[in-house]
């Protein structure tokens, strides 16, 4: 069964159509990459998947639940990590994880969830420091830990390694592979096509609000006789 389906989705803001027809599906346990240039419609699509924005037309389902009509059910099984997200600056890392765990469980179960989150964040003693003292890499590790600690069925991450140094980006990708091995479906968006090539099982290329291509990185590279996804994208868009 597909963990997520996106069928001819459109999104209009005022008089501007940001998403003009996007289709793809994501299989359970896959790491799926949504790639495209800035302004292609990736974030709008992820926000619609995450119940944050209303879908103008089309349909999105998560594990069989319609995002538009069963948003409460969808929120129980997804985790969304926005691009450049932050945490509440006056809280410590531990308090932030506790606050977030409180939405999913109580008592011992919540404690267990926080312990797992702390393990994933791997911040050592700094977990008890205030969030506003964290570096960008530490903040991202905390947020990823927050996103995966409630064991979501689908994790949606927008530009997850954007702005991180090589070491931190590497660590984050390791975490993503790990949770995928545990059965979590991961959807990431990125304009870094090399990262997606390394990480994703399948990708959908988006340009100007439309799906241009969909397939495994290997298939796409072979089809366009290209050495990397960036080349594939340029050939697909420019013909």
């Amino acid at each position: 069964m597909d963990a997520l389906t996106v069928e001819d989705v459109h999104k209009v803001y005022g008089d501007r159509e940001a998403v003009k027809g996007i289709d793809f599906s994501v299989r359970t346990g896959e790491i799926f990459g949504l790639i495209g240039p800035n302004g292609a419609g990736k974030t709008s699509t992820l926000r619609m998947m995450s119940t944050l924005l209303r879908i103008t037309s089309g349909r999105i389902t998560v594990c069989g639940h319609d995002v538009a009509t069963e948003s409460d059910e969808v929120r129980k099984i997804i985790s969304y990590l926005p691009e450049d997200a932050g945490a509440y600056k006056d809280l410590t890392g531990r308090a932030y994880l506790k606050f977030m765990a409180g939405f999913f469980a109580d008592g011992a179960e919540a404690e267990k969830m926080v312990a797992y989150g702390m393990e994933m964040a791997d911040l050592g003693d700094r977990i008890d420091s205030k969030v506003d003292t964290y570096s960008k890499g530490m903040m991202r590790r905390l947020l990823i830990a927050r996103a995966i600690m409630p064991a979501p069925k689908v994790a949606i991450m927008d530009e997850v390694t954007s702005g991180l140094d090589v070491i931190n980006a590497f660590e984050i990708r390791k975490i993503i592979r790990k949770i995928s091995e545990q059965g979590v479906t991961v959807i990431i968006s990125s304009h870094n096509m090399f990262e997606v090539d390394m990480l994703c099982d399948r990708v959908a290329m988006i340009n100007d609000g439309r799906t241009v291509l969909c397939g495994t990185p290997g298939e796409l590279k072979e089809r366009f006789n290209a050495s990397n996804l960036e080349e594939v994208f340029v050939k697909a868009v420019k013909g």
């Binding site: 409460d72 969304y80 932050g86």
Partner: peptide, 15 residues
Amino acid sequence: KENKTLETLLTMPVG
């Protein structure tokens, strides 16, 4: 909004 904590909060399973 600036810190995008609101986006995270709005995707929590809470009304």
